[in-house]
Amino acid sequence: MRADGDDVQERIAEYRRIAVFGGVYSNAPALEAMLADARGRDVEAVFCLGDMGGFGPHPDRVFPLLREAGVLAIQGNYDESLALGKTDCGCGYTDPRDNHFARISYEYTFAKTSMENKRWLGGLPAHRRLRLGTRRVLMSHGSPRVINEFLWESATPTGLLKRFLREGAADVLLCTHTGIKWHRALPDGTHAVNVGVIGRPENDGSSNVWYTVLTAGPDLSVEFIPVHYDYETLARQMEQEGLPPEFAETVRTGWWTTCLENLPSQERSRGKF
């Protein structure tokens, strides 16, 4: 509080149009394609909601791309685990088969990520706040309260989103972590958006990945942008690195083959496996 009794407002950056993505999962070709696409869309800043590694090959390749493009990132559970030297990714799986693949992925990523990049991940903030026009935006990886909380479209009640927005003093909540994008406009004019991931296709039989462009205005504009990239090269690199063939299959087919057991029934029923 200032001496005159007025609250001191924290300086929060204000934007008109931004690009936001999540879950890079060591997919450098997709990241490169996405950044090039965003440059052509007149965005003022690019944000990443975390999880740079896991699933894909050569984890260190994504960091120069993020830094050179000036991407403003927050920390995901994978980033937190790598930075702290934890023994597992903290993805929040409870199923034995999911945990088997998660373990392979994490051990590979941990061994192949440089100390310098782990330190960089350790310095990322847990949340970011900004203004998009007049709207207050809160960014988190999982949920605002738990870094690895899954917010699936069919398993996230509107009442819970209202609570997150109220407690977070925000008009727009942005999150990722699940790997499948969605947008819900709430009756009071607030919004929740899962921005999707660019590291892995979203279990719909298409090889492309997704990011999100948000534009201020009387009505908030939320555009999901497909990103097409050289997935065959990525799949071959995964095979050369000895990653599970199930991972390369997902990259080629667009169907998830692992990490399926956390999917609620609606999302699971749309996939092949």
């Binding site: 398993a155 996230t156 009640p157 009442g159 819970l160 209202k162 609570r163 997150f164």
Partner: peptide, 8 residues
């Protein structure tokens, strides 16, 4: 529970 922000 809805008013309290229940998840499941």
């Amino acid at each position: 529970a809805e008013d309290l922000g229940v998840k499941e």
